[in-house]
């Protein structure tokens, strides 16, 4: 008996410990990265760091704007390309598709969501980059190497699709059948029911799925880095190379210890990513959290 109680106590203590460790992780990560980026923050103000574009680490000049802008730009392109497609495909899969197609699609989406980002990057190099340099850029009357913001956006869009589609179909599935029956019985067509009832009912869920898709796109590293060109410049032409934040961190870890403050700058970039993505996640997951509670 004593042994059982002892076992019960120790396991409970261990369970609580693990839970606390896991939940404190973002805080620990945040604090760790903050401490590391302190030297840079003392060196320059947050404003100049974020909104100037003079990036010359060897001269102690750290303007993050090209990277922030690059990140925003690729994320935006990815979102614009993937969101409507996801929404339509989500509607089709949950409302109109044959059950056989649905049965095939769900595992396929799952598997694709689990493919490593390097694989998407390889695909980007094999397909998207040549597609842009040989086909898309000439259409818009420019020439391009293909390693561009546009390529990053397209690869990201494709990566986000399984992720967002998964969430969106989950949301649509929670719309009760009775609600659709009610709408149809009042004389709505299938599409009108979708438009007025299903989408309306799923509104918070759709917005959350989109938000989380954006967060994922914003933090994605390898696939984007492989196709985006990685040149420090601020450009509004999507057929120019860009340099998103995650790529900055990943590309320069080798030399960061040889230049003063450079390591601090890269950790600041990671902190920036963490804060932005954590915020987006907190907000949009709260939506889902609230709807689940009800």
């Amino acid at each position: 008996m004593f042994r059982r109680i002892f076992f019960d106590r120790t396991t409970k203590t261990w369970m609580i410990t693990t839970m606390v460790i896991i939940l404190l992780m973002p805080v620990i990560i945040g604090v760790g990265l903050y401490l590391k980026s302190l030297p840079l923050l003392e060196h320059q103000s947050l404003r100049t760091l974020l909104f100037t574009s003079d990036w010359q680490p060897s001269q102690g000049k750290f303007g993050f704007w090209p990277f922030v802008a690059g990140s925003i730009y690729v994320t935006l392109i990815a979102f614009v390309l993937s969101a409507p497609v996801c929404l339509l495909a989500g509607i089709y899969l949950t409302q109109f598709a044959s059950s056989r197609l649905v049965k095939v699609m769900y595992p396929v989406i799952d598997i694709l969501a689990g493919l490593p980002s390097v694989i998407y990057g390889v695909w980007g190099i094999l397909v998207v980059v040549p597609f842009i340099s040989k086909f898309l850029a000439p259409i818009f009357g420019t020439t391009s190497s293909g390693y561009t913001i546009m390529a990053g956006g397209i690869v990201l869009a494709v990566m986000c699709v399984p992720y967002m589609l998964n969430m969106i179909t989950e949301v649509f599935k929670t719309v009760p059948m009775g609600l659709r029956e009610a709408s149809l019985s009042l004389g709505a067509t299938f599409w009108e029911s979708v438009k007025h009832v299903v989408i309306r009912k799923s509104y918070p869920g759709i917005i959350s799925a989109f938000g989380l898709g954006i967060a994922k796109a914003f933090g994605e590293t390898m696939a984007v880095m492989m196709v985006v060109g990685n040149r420090v410049q601020v450009h509004f032409n999507p057929f120019e190379a860009g340099y998103p934040l995650p790529a900055l961190i990943a590309n320069n870890y080798g030399e960061m210890l040889s230049i003063p403050l450079y390591d601090s700058a890269l950790m600041f970039a990671a902190l920036l990513l963490l804060v932005i993505i954590l915020l987006i996640n907190l907000i949009f997951r709260y939506f889902i959290f609230k709807t689940r509670e009800r």
Binding site: G178, L179, E181, H196, V197, R200
Partner: peptide, 9 residues
């Protein structure tokens, strides 16, 4: 229906 299903409006 068995349960009321008011539209989300």
């Amino acid at each position: 229906s068995q349960r009321p299903y008011p539209l989300p409006v």
